[in-house]
Design a protein around this nucleic acid. Structure first.
Lengths: 229, 229
DNA sequence: TCTTAACGTGAGCTTTTACTCACGTTTATT
DNA sequence: AATAAACGTGAGTAAAAGCTCACGTTAAGA
């Protein structure tokens, strides 16, 4: 019999929903500035222009802020993924797909600087499960595309390829966004594009610059498309 | 006039030097288990079978443990680097150099599991400077070799190439050592070798499987040695 | 309008943990 | 042997920060 009023509740009125959003925005900013460990819940509440009591009305503890932030970014990531799904996949080349994907994700990071911080905080126990899920989704996305382009790959090969691509992309995006100036950032992203193109072209057995539609018919295209430039 | 006895001092007797080592070993193990934030100095002292007072006699604060650990790993890394310097660089191929380097570093990580933890803790303010130095050294090492093999590259290109290679190697070694079984780990390392070989071969304009001695004489060897295997 | 429930507040309680210090013990020096 | 210096100890301190709670305010339902 839990007749006692619940200590924590979800917001039901409009003002409290807005407050929860403000608290998450504040947490995002404060974690970005100080990191999760150094940030205090009182600081987050102050930044959100609310009281510490209100924060704890909607979030059971400090970790819950991190988890809620991760979920919010998860939503945004899913939206990004569907937005980046090419409208004309058959007409695109492997190089073009990779380039668009990297540029799109880079724009996302530029617009969501707190996301990089969250990734760095990913060792936190409360986030581990969610992050594995997230990475798994991304790896599965890459793996799914790869499996389509290269049906001759075994599921194990597809899995490892997805994980490797995910790790490299994440590392190089992070490196790129450590650069302060846009020129250095773009140079780093170009290296990422080159590396992923070379790797996937080799592993999938797909040439870099041939529209993928041309390859749809033949199974396991064994064309080792090596070229000078 | 600082006639007052120093609060912290370096060990001068043998027993205290051994104690400092034990404290560092304990810190390494505890940070690996709990992470830096969750670990307590009392826990470290207990693991080292000493008292909290002794710990603070030799380390001014908790951060100093992290810094000292990083320095100790820095020494080990330098030893590894000189050990991995090939004895017959001219007879080796690009693919062979990369493979040996990745295998050597992997063995190092297997023998020093705390090092991976330390890398993850690298955002800590006390470590940032040291880590940049470390990464810079590795990037410079790669860049130095690259500049030798490809004198036509500009210093800026060499720099970015070193940073990119360092980031990718670090990410894939981390991914590999997340795998529990040796087979998965080796599969991931093989992908790392392939990716680095493809990338460096392209960027340096050096074929993958030709002994480097053959290329020493000609300046800026413009041989696009592309081959099927 | 009256009642109830959701919402908002911030002083302060409680727990945690980095760190100290006064005192005892071992090693070096004369 | 005597003195000093380095070393070792752990109960206790102090400050920080997560979190509570009793009370006041706003919105919803009858």
């Amino acid at each position: 019999m839990e007749t006692s009023p619940p200590r924590r509740r979800d917001p039901v009125q409009a003002r409290s929903r807005a407050r929860v959003d403000a608290i998450l925005d504040a947490a995002d900013a404060v974690f970005l500035e100080l990191g999760f460990a150094e940030a205090t819940t009182n600081h987050v509440a102050a930044r959100a222009q609310t009281s510490i009591g209100s924060l704890y009305r909607f979030f059971p503890d400090k970790d819950a802020l991190l988890v809620a932030l991760a979920e919010r970014y998860g939503d945004r990531m899913r939206a990004l993924a569907s937005q980046l799904t090419p409208m004309d996949p058959e007409g695109a080349t492997l190089r073009g797909l990779i380039s668009d994907g990297i540029d799109g994700f880079s724009a996302f990071l530029l617009a969501n600087p707190g996301f990089v911080t969250l990734i760095h905080e990913a060792r936190h126990p409360a986030l581990v499960a969610g992050r594995r899920h997230q990475e798994g989704q991304m790896a599965a996305l890459i793996g799914g595309l790869s499996g389509k382009l290269a049906p001759h790959l075994s599921p194990e090969e597809v899995q490892i390829l997805g994980e490797v691509a995910q790790a490299v992309l994440s590392a190089l995006q992070t490196l790129a966004h450590l650069q302060a100036d846009a020129a250095s950032r773009e140079a780093t992203l170009n290296e990422a594009k080159l590396m992923m193109t070379l790797y996937l072209s080799r592993r999938l057995g797909v040439p870099e610059d041939v529209p993928l539609a041309r390859l749809g018919g033949e199974h396991s295209g064994q064309n080792s498309g090596q070229r000078g430039a």
